[in-house]
């Protein structure tokens, strides 16, 4: 008998893929927590079912995660690219949102991580100008 995660000769492609996928899943689980971690070559996409009523008690970084999932399902990597947050932090927020019953989760084949988005700075700048006009820094 061979232990989980081990290979024996001659190597078979299916066994190699299974071990690699298992290793990837364990690594994801370590980074993201159980709710958001990938399983066997599949990753989760997340979409809001409802905006949590208690969101004002959540960290503001979590608001940005909520906003990304409004329109369509996104993977943790896609949320990270949009928000600039670490995937582990996002995984924690997803668990909070899921615990509130406000999240739907869909399985999808793994896709390459997207490039970070940078167009948000325009709105940050405008929000800052409006905030200053309102008397807030």
């Amino acid at each position: 008998m061979h232990g989980a995660g081990t290979l024996h000769l001659p190597w078979r492609v299916s066994e190699v893929l299974a071990v690699l996928s298992e290793a990837g899943s364990e690594a994801d689980a370590g980074r993201l927590g159980d709710y958001a971690s990938a399983q066997m070559g599949v990753e989760w996409s997340f979409r809001l079912r409802a905006w949590p009523l208690n969101f004002e008690r959540l960290p503001k970084a979590c608001w940005s995660v909520l906003a990304t999932m409004l329109r369509k399902p996104l993977t943790v990597a896609q949320i990270a690219a949009r928000t600039g947050l670490e995937e582990m932090e996002i995984g924690g927020y997803l668990e909070l949102i899921a615990a509130d019953g406000a999240l739907d989760r869909f399985a999808a084949p793994r896709t390459p991580a997207p490039a970070p988005r940078s167009e948000g700075s325009r709105w940050r700048s405008l929000a800052g100008r409006i905030g200053r006009a309102l008397g807030f820094s």
Partner: peptide, 18 residues
Amino acid sequence: RESIAHMFEILFTLLEYG
């Protein structure tokens, strides 16, 4: 005004990320 600023803060979060 702080209430209105709060509304705008949320609106701009939606605009920026959603």
